[in-house]
Design a protein around this nucleic acid. Structure first.
Lengths: 225, 225
DNA sequence: ACACTAATCCATGGATCTATGGAGGATTCT
DNA sequence: AGAATCCTCCATAGATCCATGGATTAGTGT
C-alpha cells in the first residue's frame, strides 16, 4: 500500500497554490482587496482608507502583488494598485460567502458592524425592474472616486459623508434605493438609517458594486451625473 | 476627509473572513482539501496519503474544521473528515485557477510534477460524446475508495498502482480515456504514459472528478463495476 | 543641484504558525 | 476491567509573519 508517497514536486506545486491562500490570510489584506474591487487606488489612499500606516500598507500590497492578485501602474510619482482580474474579485467574493456559510463567528461580527437593519432589501433584479419603471432613484453612497470608477447606470452620487447636508439633492417624493461596495459594506446601511430618520422612504440593494460587476451587469463610468 | 476611520467591528468582521483565508494558507492543508474533495477519509488515511505524521495531520484538520471548511463524522473508533459543502470545493478550485493564472511560479511547478505530457487531452463534453458513442473505455485510476465514493458513470476502476499487472482487464482494441482527481492530479498522467508505453492508445480527461462534480454532471457510486 | 513627495526597502521585537513527541480521551473488543 | 486503536490535546523549538521606525530610491518641480 504505497499510498505514503512524499513527493517534493507535489509539495512545491501545492506550496505555490498556498501563496495565493496566504495572501488571503490577513484581515487587513482582505480590506485592501475590498477597496480595490471598487477601482484602482494609490498606496497612500489605500493606507488611509484601511486605517494602516503607510509602511504597513505597502508591505501588505507587496504581498498581494507577489501573489499576483494585484498589479500596479505608475503615474508620475504615485503608484496605482488594481485587482489583477475579475477572477480575483470572484475569489474574494466566494471566500466571504464560504466564510459566512460555514463560520459561526461571521454572523455576529456582521451584525455588529452593519447594525440592526430592519431596513428592507431589494435584489439586483428587482432594482433593474424599478429602474425600468422609473419609480425609484438609485443612490450611490460610496466616495466620489469609486462612483467615478464605475457605478450603476442612472445612479446619482452622494457620498454618505455628505448625505446630511445634500439630502435635498434627491428628487422629491420618490423612493430611494441605496447601494455601496458590496454585501458587507456599511455605507448603504448607514445611508438608509439616515434617510428614514429624516422621513424619506429608503431601502437598500442587498449587495453592491462588487456583485454587480461579477454579474456582468452594465456599468457607467465618470462623474457626469 | 474623514476617510481614515478605524472601526474595530470592521476589523473583527474581516478577521473572521481571514480565518477562512488562513485555512487556505498552507500547502499541506490544500493537499488535504484535494484529497477530501474526492470523498470522506479518516485522519489516518489522510495523514498517510499526504505524507504527514498523524499529529501534524490532525492539527491541520483541526484548523480546517475551525474554519468550517470540513466536518467530521464518528464511526466507531475512527473519525471521518469530509468537505463541508460544494462551495468549499468550488473555493478550492477557484483558488488553484487564480493561482495558475496570476502566479508565474505555478506553471513550472505543475510541469515538474505532472511531467511532460505530450499526451492529448479531452474535455468533459468530448468525453461524454465518446461515452455516448461507446467508442472508448473510461478508466478511473484513483485509489479504489475514491472510485467507490463517486465516479463517472460507466468508468471502470484500476488504481494506477495496479495498472501494470491488471492491464489485461481493459477491453481490447478500444481507446482508453483516463481520469483522476482533478486538473493537478498526477495519476492520470502516469497512467497515460504507462499505457502508451505498452502500446495502448490512451488519452486523458483534461481535469478530473473535482471539476466533474462542480459541473453537476451525473455521478455513480459503489464498486459494482 | 536641491528640496519635496510617494513609495519601497531594511532591521527589529513581538506574535503566530508548523512539525513533532508524549500524554490523555473516546470507543471497541475480549 | 484491561488492552488496543484512533485521534486529540499539550508543550516546545524553530520558522514565518506583522507592525513600525528609519533609511533609501524614483520621480517632480524650482
Amino acid at each position: 500500500m504505497p499510498e505514503t508517497v512524499k513527493s517534493p514536486t507535489k509539495a512545491r506545486l501545492y506550496e505555490a497554490f498556498a501563496t495565493t491562500g496566504k495572501a488571503l490570510a490577513s484581515g487587513k489584506r482582505l480590506e485592501l482587496l475590498d477597496l480595490l474591487a471598487q477601482g484602482e487606488r494609490t498606496v497612500d489612499a489605500l493606507a488611509k482608507a484601511a486605517g494602516l500606516n503607510l509602511t504597513t500598507a505597502s508591505a501588505h500590497l507587496q504581498t498581494l502583488k507577489q501573489a499576483g492578485l494585484v498589479t500596479t501602474r505608475r503615474e508620475g510619482v504615485r503608484i496605482h494598485y488594481q485587482l489583477a482580474g475579475d477572477d480575483v474579485a470572484q475569489l474574494f467574493a466566494l471566500l466571504r460567502k464560504v466564510a459566512e456559510t460555514h463560520l459561526p463567528a461571521v454572523e455576529p461580527a456582521r451584525a455588529a458592524y452593519l447594525g440592526e437593519d430592519g431596513g428592507q432589501e431589494v435584489s439586483r433584479e428587482q432594482l433593474l425592474a424599478h429602474v425600468e419603471a422609473g419609480d425609484v432613484v438609485v443612490l450611490d453612497v460610496r466616495p466620489l472616486e469609486e462612483y467615478a470608477a464605475g457605478h450603476i447606470p442612472g445612479a446619482i452620487s452622494i457620498p454618505v459623508d455628505e448625505l446630511a447636508e445634500r439630502i435635498d439633492d434627491l428628487p422629491d417624493g420618490v423612493e430611494v434605493v441605496t447601494y455601496c461596495r458590496g454585501e458587507y459594506c456599511v455605507l448603504a446601511h448607514d445611508a438608509v438609517r439616515m434617510l428614514t430618520s429624516r422621513g424619506r422612504r429608503a431601502i437598500r440593494l442587498n449587495d453592491g458594486m462588487l456583485e454587480w460587476r461579477l454579474a456582468d451587469l452594465p456599468i457607467a463610468a465618470g462623474t457626469d451625473a
